[in-house]
């Protein structure tokens, strides 16, 4: 679906953010990108979305640039617009006729469990609900590739778990390809099929781990085992 090859990127202040970073994500995969804060994970995601251009290397898509959905760490909603208008933003920007766009946006809101909240403003919603609107906005554009930048980092554990389960459900139902940036071993061990471990300064991929099947719940033995493997890879990566 998407491949990053030999990517290098310097920040405007001269700091080398990424160097010789390569990985690819196959169609339909749920891949997590794990690493400590400040290792350039968000930069990788912006490169993948085409919001940043690499200094060297290339970002290539298998069949032309797919429709991309992007979910930020912060909900990034328009505070002056209700949930419906927020979810409709990608469609409005594409100048889709209003009734069609409304139908799609309300379907997306219903899918993230926000039916009945179409007219609520962001400040009237809880943190978890705002994040759901943000996900609905990404879904409304009917993406093939969903990029998530630590979307649950600011939420409490109960909300985080519920949203994680919902994300898995959406991924299965829509056959999405997901690239999920996180610094949580627990979260990624349960959600993803494959793990990319990243180290900082300069950021590069140090481990690519396919996780075993059987991780049906957060406490399943296979999930716990996956956490052990990921933690090991992470520790090795940081120690290097």
């Amino acid at each position: 679906m998407i491949a990053l090859t030999g990517i290098a990127k310097r920040f405007p202040n001269g700091v080398e953010a990424l160097n010789d970073l390569s990985f690819s994500v196959n169609r339909g995969e749920f891949v997590s990108l794990l690493g400590p804060s400040g290792c350039g994970k968000s930069t990788v995601l912006r490169l993948a979305a085409g919001l940043l251009a690499p200094d060297a290397g290339a970002v290539t898509y298998a069949n032309g640039k797919p429709q991309i959905g992007f979910v930020f760490q912060d909900h990034t909603l328009m505070p002056w617009a209700d949930a419906m208008t927020n979810a409709r933003l990608p469609l409005d920007l594409k100048r889709m006729p209003r009734d069609q766009a409304d139908a799609r946006a309300s379907t997306a809101l219903a899918r993230v469990g926000l039916a009945g909240f179409e007219r609520a403003y962001p400040r009237e919603l809880s943190g978890g609900m705002r994040m759901r609107v943000s996900i609905a906005r990404a879904l409304a554009a009917q993406p093939q590739l969903l990029l998530l930048d630590e979307p649950f980092a600011a939420l409490d554990e109960i909300t985080r778990n519920a949203l994680g389960d919902d994300l898995l459900k959406l991924w299965r139902e829509d056959g999405l390809t997901v690239l999920f940036v996180t610094h949580s071993v627990g979260e990624s061990s349960y959600l993803s099929q494959r793990m990319l471990v990243m180290t900082p300064r300069p950021g590069r991929i140090t481990a690519d781990i396919a996780l075993a099947v059987g991780r049906d719940s957060r406490l399943a033995p296979a999930t716990i085992e996956a956490q052990r493997v990921i933690s090991g890879a992470l520790n090795t990566a940081i120690a290097e």
Partner: peptide, 23 residues
């Protein structure tokens, strides 16, 4: 990030101005 999002969806400068910057 909101401005980036409009870029991702191919918004024109006018659309970004009208839908994001002015409000």
């Amino acid at each position: 990030n909101l401005i980036d999002l409009t870029r991702l969806y191919g918004a024109s400068r006018l659309q970004t101005l009208w839908r994001i910057r002015l409000p």
